[in-house]
């Protein structure tokens, strides 16, 4: 009995010591962005689907700081804050119809006007947006931003369109589907810009994690899009 008690005390001390000696850079982890109820949400977002598979992917395990720098360069902005640490476990849903894979669903946390928002995109196997979905969005203008008409503006776009969009200035540098996306409420401009930044980040991560960087050819270092 006494031996067990001593073992537990030693275990606790070892665990605490291990925590204290962890390198400071490790003290930045985060929780990912899951669908609230995948059964209901996948069926609704991907009509005709029969199942899904959940995968967790992280930049820390795919390439570390070097990959993070590449992702930031493609985004045109630094990853920052609580939602964009290097070890965020991104949740990627593979969507099936029977045994056939028919697409993907992926969400990201993004800093919004009131805390965080969660931006999900529904993609076909080629990375074309088939649906757009705000999960968490507590803004008083949430009703307008959640309106299907707003999400429909994203349908058919790809990462190629978003390379034209500067997430820092909120402007598109050339003709693309992104500049046609209209903010339904002028007062919701911070969340509107956050939605576009979140979508671009989302698409870049999917391109990196799943699509083999097929859209990298449209990106040029320095923020200018390749023609």
């Amino acid at each position: 009995m006494l031996g067990i008690a001593i073992m537990k005390k030693i275990s606790l001390m070892v665990a605490v010591a291990a925590i204290l000696v962890l390198p400071a850079r490790l003290l930045f982890a985060a929780v990912g962005c899951d669908l609230n109820d995948p059964d209901r949400d996948v069926a609704r977002l991907f009509p005709g689907s029969t199942g899904y598979k959940t995968n967790y992917v992280g930049l820390d395990q795919r390439g570390g700081p070097a990959l993070l720098a590449q992702i930031e360069e493609r985004l045109g902005d630094k990853f920052q804050g609580l939602f964009e640490t290097i070890d965020v476990p991104y949740t990627l849903y593979e969507v099936f119809k029977g045994k056939e894979k028919i697409g993907y669903i992926h969400g990201v946390n993004q800093k919004g006007q009131y805390g965080g928002i969660q931006v999900f995109v529904v993609l076909d196997l080629e990375g074309v947006i088939r649906n757009f979905y705000f999960q968490k969005l507590t803004s008083r203008y949430g009703k307008e931003l959640r309106d299907p008409k707003f999400g429909e503006q994203f349908v058919g776009l790809t990462l190629k369109d978003f390379y034209n969009y500067d997430v820092q200035t909120g402007r598109a540098s050339g003709p693309s589907g992104v500049e046609k996306i209209k903010n339904p409420v002028p007062e919701a401009e911070p969340d509107f810009k956050a939605a576009l930044r979140g979508t671009k980040k989302n698409l870049i991560l999917v391109d990196e994690f799943i699509l083999g960087n097929k859209y990298l050819q449209y990106h040029k270092a320095g923020g200018e899009q390749k023609k």
């Binding site: 665990a15 605490v16 925590i19 982890a29 598979k53 959940t54 995968n55 967790y56 992917v57 395990q61 476990p89 990627l92 593979e94 994690f209 799943i210």
Partner: peptide, 14 residues
């Protein structure tokens, strides 16, 4: 054994 990525998460807490 997921198709890509992982099928598990393990967090420590203190």
């Amino acid at each position: 054994s997921p198709a890509f990525g992982k099928s598990y998460l393990l967090y420590l807490e203190a």
